[in-house]
Simulated assay, not measured.
Amino acid sequence: MTTAAGPMPVAPPGSPRHPLDPDPTRATKARAVFALGLMGALTGLLIGGVVPATVALQLARQARREAYASEGFLTGAAWLRRGESLAWTGLALAAVTVVAAVVVGVIRLAEAPYGHDFAPNVD
């Protein structure tokens, strides 16, 4: 293994990071989590929001794990938090829709006539 010739760069005094460290960048998964969470929240009442919301929550777990492993060089925690909250909102809206549909179905079933409805001339 060979090293580059010349002196190593020296960090200015008071600098918290080494000059060879990479620049902090926003995680691309953070934007994806936000976009999927927004789609999940907007389509949550139509039950279709369950899929993007679930994918957003899975991506958020991966993005948090990668951000932790990067030791602070991946940013975007605010986008992750917003995306996760929107995804949970979408799942809650889908659950409310399912519960409302079940309640309406049970009420309609309870109002239906019980037994056979024979003609008036049948004993």
Score class of each variant (00 low, 15 high):
residue 35 A to D: 05
residue 25 T to M: 12
residue 54 T to W: 07
residue 31 R to S: 12
residue 21 D to N: 00
residue 30 A to K: 05
residue 35 A to P: 00
residue 26 R to L: 15
residue 41 A to K: 06
residue 60 A to W: 06
residue 54 T to Q: 02
residue 42 L to W: 01
residue 67 A to S: 11
residue 68 Y to S: 10
residue 68 Y to E: 07
residue 29 K to Q: 12
residue 32 A to T: 04
residue 40 G to V: 15
residue 20 L to Y: 06
residue 63 A to L: 03
residue 44 G to Q: 09
residue 28 T to K: 13
residue 72 G to V: 01
residue 72 G to P: 00
residue 30 A to I: 10
residue 47 I to P: 06
residue 42 L to A: 13
residue 20 L to V: 02
residue 60 A to R: 07
residue 15 S to Q: 02
residue 31 R to A: 14
residue 48 G to V: 09
residue 38 L to K: 15
residue 32 A to M: 12
residue 68 Y to K: 12
residue 51 V to W: 10
residue 57 L to Y: 03
residue 24 P to F: 03
residue 29 K to A: 13
residue 71 E to F: 14
residue 52 P to H: 07
residue 40 G to I: 14
residue 31 R to Y: 05
residue 24 P to Y: 02
residue 22 P to I: 14
residue 53 A to I: 10
residue 16 P to R: 03
residue 39 M to E: 05
residue 41 A to V: 07
residue 24 P to E: 03
residue 36 L to K: 11
residue 12 P to T: 02
residue 57 L to F: 06
residue 71 E to V: 06
residue 24 P to C: 05
residue 31 R to P: 00
residue 50 V to H: 07
residue 37 G to H: 08
residue 54 T to N: 07
residue 54 T to P: 00
residue 59 L to W: 12
residue 16 P to Q: 07
residue 64 R to N: 08
residue 63 A to R: 01
residue 64 R to T: 06
residue 45 L to E: 06
residue 48 G to T: 09
residue 52 P to G: 05
residue 64 R to E: 12
residue 20 L to M: 14
residue 56 A to P: 01
residue 57 L to T: 05
residue 40 G to M: 14
residue 71 E to L: 15
residue 61 R to F: 05
residue 11 A to F: 01
residue 33 V to T: 13
residue 65 R to K: 13
residue 36 L to H: 00
residue 67 A to Y: 02
residue 41 A to E: 11
residue 37 G to T: 04
residue 30 A to W: 04
residue 11 A to D: 01
residue 38 L to T: 15
residue 50 V to T: 09
